[in-house]
Design a protein around this nucleic acid. Structure first.
Lengths: 201, 201
DNA sequence: GATCCCAATCTAAGCGCTCACTTATATTGT
DNA sequence: ACAATATAAGTGAGCGCTTAGATTGGGATC
């Protein structure tokens, strides 16, 4: 109905986004329960009550962050494996994409991997579904390589889990001021992934 | 001076241990900031005030858990690599040991890997030292294999980090009711580690 | 063997404070 | 005028931790 965006509404949009950004930073640094809604509001340059103008609750902020993050990852990994390429190239692309996200967006990645226990049961189930979808993409591309004879691993599902683990744990230890760039890590882990699945040389 | 242990004191020791156990369970399930001292006391079958008879603060409980956990890991991994064996055998033993701990003691492992931000700065530095020591053990055994020509990897330090990442992330996803036993995972990851470092077949 | 003592264990009650969230009102741009 | 944005000022609940005192279970003394 109302398709007009006034500048007042645009200001509201910016506040909403700033609150989400501030929540990501705070949840990542101090955890969901270690972060107060006042922390978030102050970091966004607003009063404590402003949080509730734009978001229903603190938990809904976490939910919004988690949904967005997992959707971005799922889409990126799906794109990376859709290409018409060899199993080795597809696994390398998937791992590279996954690692790049977790290194470049390590702040967001920490939140969406380590704060999920604070979600409501319903929201947790929703996120668990997205995570299963990501897992499935990785597992299927490894399984296809095993079927085609390009890979050799005793357990494709365990191997896929291991590849995802490498990316996720990056979010825990990666620091922007470290000596390894996201690209260097993506290359290294893509190579390591091919070794892990026993790709033919 | 007083070397006599009365049964009264033994009861105190048991309460102290039960409080530590309860804290591990609660911190693992709900996080440090999501856990109240009342949660811990109730789970240990004591009144809220009993926590402070045996421990100085909630943070000191976390510190005690973290010190103990990291010391156990450091000792186990050091033992595993001290054996008079080939680089391949030593890396396999180190990874097997590390993975076994994180699978069998996944509750403790979650706390000591994911709740460290709640430590005081001084306590955090202490734990960081223990973690560096564990990292060094793993890195040196990989480096030795590369020097001797048994391994082939473009970056031994990154490879060692990856091996530790696999173990740590286990603590995040491992469930006792899952289909993979700690031993099966240890075997699988030991084999994967040898592939990752490019061990000669 | 009953009595008292004492140190250790444990709790009832509550302190000051911060939490997530609400309400009633002011401000703003069109 | 009006709808959206933002805030000042709270609300009750729960937090970590303290205090003052009750309970407990051996030695030491007679």
């Amino acid at each position: 109905m109302n398709e007009v965006r006034t500048s007042t509404q645009a200001r509201g949009d910016r506040s909403r986004a700033r609150l989400l950004d501030a929540a990501v930073q705070a949840f990542s640094a101090k955890g969901f329960h270690g972060t107060s809604t006042r922390d978030i509001a102050t970091a966004a340059g607003l009063s404590p009550a402003a949080v509730y103008v734009h978001h229903r609750s603190k938990e809904e902020l976490l939910h919004a962050i988690a949904v967005r993050g997992h959707e971005v990852i799922l889409e990126a990994v799906t794109d990376a494996t859709r290409a018409d390429a060899t199993p080795a190239e597809r696994v390398a692309a998937a791992v590279r994409t996954y690692v790049l996200f977790h290194a470049r967006s390590h702040t967001t990645a920490r939140v969406i991997n380590y704060e999920l226990a604070a979600l409501t049961e319903e929201h947790f189930r929703e996120i668990a579904g997205l995570r299963r979808a990501i897992d499935t993409v990785m597992r299927e591309v490894v399984e296809e390589g095993v079927r085609s004879g390009d890979f050799d691993t005793p357990d494709p599902a365990k191997a896929a889990t291991a590849l995802l683990s490498l990316g996720i744990d990056l979010a825990r230890w990666y620091r922007d001021d470290g000596s390894w760039t996201p690209d260097a890590l993506a290359d290294f882990y893509a190579d390591l992934a091919l070794r892990a699945v026993g790709a033919r040389p």
